[in-house]
Structures are given as C-alpha cells and as structure tokens.
Amino acid sequence: MTLLLMFLEFFKTGLFAIGGGLATLPFLYNMADKYSWFTRSDLADMIAVSESTPGPIGINMATYVGFHTAGVPGAIITTTALVLPSLIVIMIVASFLKRFSESFYVKSAFYGLRPAVTGLIAAAAFEIYRITLLAIEPFLESRNILQLFQWKNIVLFAALFVLNKKVKWHPVFIILIAAVIGIVLQL
C-alpha cells in the first residue's frame, strides 16, 4: 500500500516538478507533511547526500527517500515513478521538437512558471533555515531574543556562503568542509 502511494506521489512530482535540480524539493516537503515516510529535518540530510553523490539531484533525492521509506524496492519504485511522466512526455514531444520550445504557449507558460518555481524552492529553503539557523522552542520558553538564533551556525553559514561565492568549487567540497567543522565544533 505504501509502495502504491509512493508511486503515485512521485509520479505526480515527476509530472509537475519542472525546472531541474531542486524543483522536486517543494513536493518532498509536501509529502513530509502528508505522510510519516520521513520528516522535514530528514530532508536536509537527504539534500546533502544527493548533492555529494553522482547523478542528477532530483533522481538521487527520489532514490534516497524511497530507500529510507521502503528499502531497495522503495528506491526502485520512487525513481521509476519520478522519470515515467517525463519519459512519456518526451517521446510525444520528440516528434515536433523545434516547434515545441518556440511555441507561444510554452514560452508564456514559462514566463509565469519560473518565478513561481523560485518562490516554491525559497519556501522549502525557509524550512532549512528554520532548523539550522533558528531555535524556535528555546526562544518560546525563555522569551530571550538572543536565544532565537543558533549563533555558531549563522557564523558558519555566512563564512561558507562567502567561500562558495568566491571559489566556485563543486558542492561536495563545501559539504565536506562543513562536516569537518561540524565535528570539530560539535554542532
């Protein structure tokens, strides 16, 4: 039953997640709310693994979520379900390739879609900021505004952000540096 539900959810994600890479993220957050397959904070770890292993991020996320929820069969089901809609759409589009990407409707649809996808991913990122940079519960208990922020993490965030902008390394190196700092500072 879970496998069937997972298939349907990931098929839907494959059909509506347009725009590459992190476009699947808002759908995964929605699933974390609806089902008990994984939590919102599990997702941050899954992003890290997906970004530091070979293969497209969206596929890696689906495989990880499927494996985490239902082992190897789960991984195969979620990944298959994610690529199935695009497999069908591409084979249809392949016959009128050029006209498709230059069509008025496709261009106009993307005019509205691109900003919406940016907003959707930003909303998913907000959740990551909440668990990494803020500490809502200690703040509500103490009512001390200084306790609302996880200061060590904020400093690390700023340092890594600047580093990432300057060096243009592959994300896997930023993740490794952060892991070492996490162990040293006991984050």
């Binding site: 992003i47 890290a48 994300p171």
Partner: peptide, 12 residues
C-alpha cells in the same frame, strides 16, 4: 550532519 545542514542551507 549538524555542519552539513548549514552547508545545504548555503547551497540552496
């Protein structure tokens, strides 16, 4: 992973 989550926030 405490550190890695911060890196993920940066990458996103």
């Amino acid at each position: 992973f405490g550190g890695i989550r911060v890196a993920v926030a940066v990458l996103v």
